[in-house]
Structure formats: C-alpha cells, structure tokens
C-alpha cells in the first residue's frame, strides 16, 4: 500500500443570498475574461501558421530520411533490414544489390511510403549501420503534394529531402 490517501473533496457551500443577488461570482468570472482581453489584445497565444512557425525541438520526429556517411559520403545503409522488420506500419521496402567494393551490400532502391509512416521513430533506433544510423527522423512535417505516388519516397527524395511541390494554381497560403 502506498502513501496515497483518499480525501473526500469538499463541495463549495451554496452561495449566500446577497452574493446571488449581486451576481458576485458571475462578475468574478467576467473579470477573468476581461483580464485576458486586455492582455490578449497584444499577446495572443496562437501562431499565424504559414508565416510564423514554432521552433521545433531537436528531438522532433518528422518523416524519416536517409543520410550519407558524414566523412566519406558513401551510403551508410548496409541493408540489415532492421527498420523494415520493426516498422509497425510496414512502410519501408528495400531492394538490395552487392556493394561495388565487393564487400557487403547496399540498397539498390529504398522506399518509404510516407502515407503510411506514423513517425514513431523505431526505424531510426533499430538501424544497424555504422558509425551513425543511416535512417533518421528529419524535421520535415509538411507533406502536401499533388499525387499519391509522390508520397512513396525513394532514394533521391530520402537523401535530398522534399522538393517544393510543383506550383499549382492560385496563391500560396498567406499571400
């Protein structure tokens, strides 16, 4: 048994008649909104999204992407398929080919279906490449595009990030 103890919550007593008559508690409530009004005039809590963006935390999990070896510029992925196995939505598919150096393998094609990806970050944790993980959670979170096929991100997109969607008709949001 823990140190928690049960406490019966006291219910506030009914209001005395003079408080009821002069609407005391109503006016108190209205003073709260008025205080917010006087401040909210200048300090809204909301953010004007397309123009203003909140800073992302370093650990933010956006859509997964691939990266090269930071020094040699080689592909880090060694097709251990750990990400493919752990992915809860089965959105990763890897085709492999032997590495040209004759040692190990490398992905011929690496596909992440961004439509299915749930950004859980398990793939980045499971990644078995050396010295850093090949697949990582980027800070991309906007995915609007003009076709479903464009969400099946393949190696070009996984390495270079998301190109801006082709210019459509009409203005971009927010002028």
């Amino acid at each position: 048994m823990s140190e928690a103890r049960a406490v019966v919550i006291p219910r506030p007593a009914p209001l005395p008649w003079w408080k009821r008559f002069f609407l005391v508690e109503m006016l108190q409530g209205m003073s709260v909104t008025m205080k917010h009004y006087l401040r909210g005039w200048r300090e809204p809590f909301t953010v004007q999204y397309p123009e203003e963006r909140l800073p992302l935390d370093p650990r933010f999990r956006g859509y997964p992407r691939l990266r090269m070896h930071p020094e040699t510029g080689d592909e880090l992925c060694n097709v251990c398929r750990q990400c493919e196995k752990i992915c809860p939505t089965l959105c990763i598919a890897i085709e492999e080919e032997p590495h040209p150096s004759g040692k190990g393998r490398r992905p011929r094609q690496f596909t992440v279906d961004y439509e299915r990806c749930c950004q859980c970050g398990l793939c980045a944790e499971a990644c078995g490449s050396d010295p850093i993980s090949a697949i990582y959670m980027s800070h991309d979170y906007e995915l609007a595009d003009y076709g479903r096929d464009r969400f099946r991100a393949q190696k070009d997109r996984l390495y270079l990030g998301f190109p801006a969607p082709p210019a459509g008709k009409g203005k971009a949001p927010g002028k």
């Binding site: 048994m1 823990s2 140190e3 928690a4 406490v7 919550i9 219910r11």
Partner: peptide, 21 residues
Amino acid sequence: RKYAPYENYRDYAFDIPVGSK
C-alpha cells in the same frame, strides 16, 4: 496507483480525491 502500485508510486505522498454525491 494506490491498490496495485506500479513503478515507484508507493514512494510518493499524494491524495486520491473522492466525491461524496
């Protein structure tokens, strides 16, 4: 948290509010 404490909930002092009506 009180009747089948998991993790280390038994180390903390806290109240469990209950109602009357």
